[in-house]
C-alpha cells in the first residue's frame, strides 16, 4: 500500500512537471532561488553556506549558470568559468591546478569532453574544478576545502569533516589507502611549511623587543611574502597535487624567506654592535 502510494506520488510529480513546461528564461537570480528552493532539496541552502554566497561580491546562480535554462548545467561545469573569477591563468590557484596531472588531462581532453553528465561516479576521466569542489552537485563549494590558516593547523573536527568530503570525491578513482596516505602526507607537508613560518615569526618577535619597526621593515616584508604567498603556494600545491607548487614555489621558497629574515635580523645585531663600539670610542 505504502509502495503504491509512493509510486502514485512520483507519477503525479512527473505528470505535473511534464504538464508545466520549464520556461527557458531569462531569469533574475531571485527567481532561480525561489523556484529551486522547492525543486531541489538542499541545493539553495548549500549554496547559501558556501563562500560563493558569503563573499563580498556574491557569486550567485546567474553568475555561473547564466540567466537561461539552456545549457545552464553544462556551462557551469566548465573550468574556464571558474578561472575567470579566480585570478586568471597565471594566478597560483589556477596555475597550480593547471600544472597538476588532473589539470593537464582536462586541458587535453576538453574538446571531446561531454559536460552533460552529473559530477559524480567518475563520469569524467579527470576532475575539473567543479568535479571536486561541487561533487554530486553539492553547491557548497567550501565543503571540501580546508580553511586557509597560515600559522595553525585546523582542529580535528574540521579536519575530519573536510577529509570525509574529499574522500568521497577521490575514491571515485583512487584506492582508500592511497587517499589516506595522501591526506596524511599533505597535512605533514603543510605543517612543515608552518614550522618555517613560526620560526620566522619567533625571530621577528624576539627582534621586536630590541629594534624599531622601521629597522625591521625589510624583514617584515619577507615575512609577509612568506606567509601570504609561499605558504599559500604550498597549500595549493598539496590541494591540487602540483609537485612544482609543493616544491619550487613552496618549500625552498619558504627556506629562502626564513634565511633572509634571519639574515636581516642578524644584520641589525651586527650593525648595533658596530655602532656601540664607535660610540664608545668617541667617548
Amino acid at each position: 500500500m505504502h509502495r503504491l502510494f509512493c509510486v502514485g506520488l512520483l507519477g503525479f510529480a512527473a505528470l505535473s512537471m511534464a504538464g508545466t513546461p520549464i520556461p527557458e528564461g531569462p531569469f533574475e537570480n531571485a527567481a532561480c532561488v525561489s523556484c529551486h528552493r522547492q525543486q531541489n532539496d538542499g541545493l539553495v541552502s548549500a549554496w547559501q553556506e558556501s563562500a560563493h554566497a558569503t563573499a563580498e561580491t556574491t557569486v550567485d546562480c546567474v553568475s555561473c549558470h547564466g540567466n537561461s535554462h539552456r545549457n545552464a548545467a553544462v556551462r557551469a561545469r566548465r573550468d574556464s568559468l571558474c578561472v575567470d573569477c579566480h585570478g586568471g591563468e597565471d594566478s597560483p590557484v589556477v596555475h597550480s591546478y593547471a600544472t597538476s596531472k588532473h589539470g593537464v588531462l582536462v586541458r587535453l581532453e576538453q574538446e571531446e569532453r561531454d559536460y552533460n553528465f552529473p559530477l559524480q561516479q567518475a563520469n569524467y576521466r579527470a576532475p575539473g574544478c567543479s568535479y571536486c569542489h561541487m561533487h554530486k552537485a553539492n553547491h557548497n563549494v567550501s565543503a571540501s576545502i580546508r580553511v586557509w590558516n597560515a600559522t595553525e593547523g585546523v582542529n580535528s573536527a574540521e579536519r575530519e569533516r573536510v577529509q570525509d568530503a574529499m574522500r568521497a570525491v577521490c575514491q571515485d578513482c583512487h584506492s582508500p589507502r592511497y587517499i589516506t596516505r595522501l591526506f596524511n602526507n599533505g597535512e605533514n607537508m603543510l605543517d612543515i611549511g608552518r614550522m618555517k613560518v613560526r620560526e620566522a615569526a619567533g625571530v621577528l618577535e624576539q627582534a621586536a623587543h630590541e629594534f624599531s619597526a622601521e629597522d625591521l621593515a625589510g624583514a617584515r616584508k619577507h615575512f609577509m611574502r612568506m606567509q601570504s604567498r609561499h605558504l599559500k603556494n604550498l597549500y595549493l600545491g598539496i590541494g591540487h597535487q602540483s609537485p612544482d607548487y609543493q616544491w619550487w614555489h613552496g618549500q625552498p621558497a619558504l627556506d629562502g624567506d626564513l634565511l633572509r629574515i634571519k639574515g636581516a635580523v642578524g644584520d641589525l645585531y651586527r650593525l648595533r654592535a658596530s655602532k656601540n663600539s664607535r660610540d664608545g670610542n668617541k667617548q
Binding site: 618555517k196 620560526e199 625571530v203 634571519k262 635580523v265 645585531y269
Partner: peptide, 10 residues
C-alpha cells in the same frame, strides 16, 4: 649569529 641560526621550530 649561531643562536639565531641553530634554533627554531623548523
Amino acid at each position: 649569529p649561531s643562536t639565531l641560526w641553530l634554533f627554531g621550530d623548523y
